[in-house]
Simulated scan of single mutants.
Amino acid sequence: MKGCALVTGASRGLGAEIARRLARDGWAVAVNYLPDRADAEAVVASIVAAGGVAQAFRADVTDEAAVGGLVAAVEERFGPVGVLVPNATGPQPSIPSAELTWQDHLDQLVFFVKSPTLLMQAVLPGMRSLGGGRIVQIGSDLFERAAPGMAAYSAAKGAQISLTRTWARELGPSGITVNVVAPGWIPVERHAAIERSHFDAYLADVPLGRFGTPAEVADVVAFLASEASRFITGERITVNGGHVMD
């Protein structure tokens, strides 16, 4: 198994760091983005400057036709996808359960159930041609924390875990492992406007006494993408400094 790595939502935040980390491990990286071309090109430039190989690919990974086109373009440039990291996400509003609509649920499911499913199906023939592959989903420890207002997001993340375990059983005979990396709160660009009091309240419950970094999440993704993880599948690894413990 080798091929390339495809990281969705990789123009910034966790996705950008995961792309850079996989490139350092020798993967040719497809940096997927939707609205942020300049940011995606900056990620590619940083990878190339460090001696790696990468290219930016624009696609809406919640759209079936776009996903097919994305994977076809990636395979034309780099060959089959050996590592898939479905990282793309959307807005995650806090909505009281009494006001929650079915559309609110669908808005989360489209990123954490529909998109990963479309991506898995699109890369599967290529992974089988390689004799195996790695699918590493990006989850969240909110599934355990049951934070008020986050019912739709948490439910979708729970569904993501179920997908991972089922796929691990179904795809294992093809040499494909499927796992979830579940970060705690890892501050990135989109958290810039949050009040400091929220940061302090969160840290009070973290045994290691600090926030994690995107690089620490990327390290775990890189491990699961590597040969060192070859006998690990259907698992969920939480990266949150002990904030919640399975």
Rank of each mutant, 00 (worst) to 15 (best):
C4N: 03
T8K: 10
G9D: 04
G9A: 05
R12C: 14
A16V: 03
A16M: 12
R20Q: 13
R21C: 01
D25I: 00
G26A: 03
N32P: 12
Y33T: 10
P35E: 13
D36N: 14
D39P: 14
A40R: 09
S46L: 10
G52C: 05
V53Q: 13
F57I: 05
R58T: 07
R58S: 11
D60K: 07
V61H: 07
T62S: 12
A65I: 06
A66K: 07
G68D: 04
L70Y: 03
V71E: 04
E75S: 10
E75W: 04
F78M: 04
P80I: 01
V81P: 00
V81C: 00
L84A: 01
V85Q: 04
A88G: 09
I95P: 10
I95N: 04
A98R: 15
E99R: 11
E99Y: 10
T101S: 12
Q103C: 07
D104A: 07
L106A: 15
Q108N: 08
V110F: 09
K114E: 13
P116C: 02
L118W: 04
R128M: 09
I135C: 00
V136H: 01
Q137E: 10
S140P: 10
L142E: 13
A146N: 15
P148A: 15
M150A: 15
A156D: 11
A156E: 09
K157V: 07
K157H: 11
Q160Y: 07
I161M: 13
L163Y: 10
T164I: 05
W167D: 04
E170D: 09
E170H: 10
S174H: 12
S174M: 06
S174K: 06
T177M: 02
V178E: 02
A182I: 08
A182E: 10
V188T: 15
E189F: 12
E189R: 11
R190Q: 14
R190Y: 14
E195R: 14
H198D: 13
A201I: 02
D205I: 08
P207N: 10
L208K: 07
E216R: 03
A222Q: 00
F223N: 00
F223C: 00
A225D: 00
S226E: 02
M245W: 12
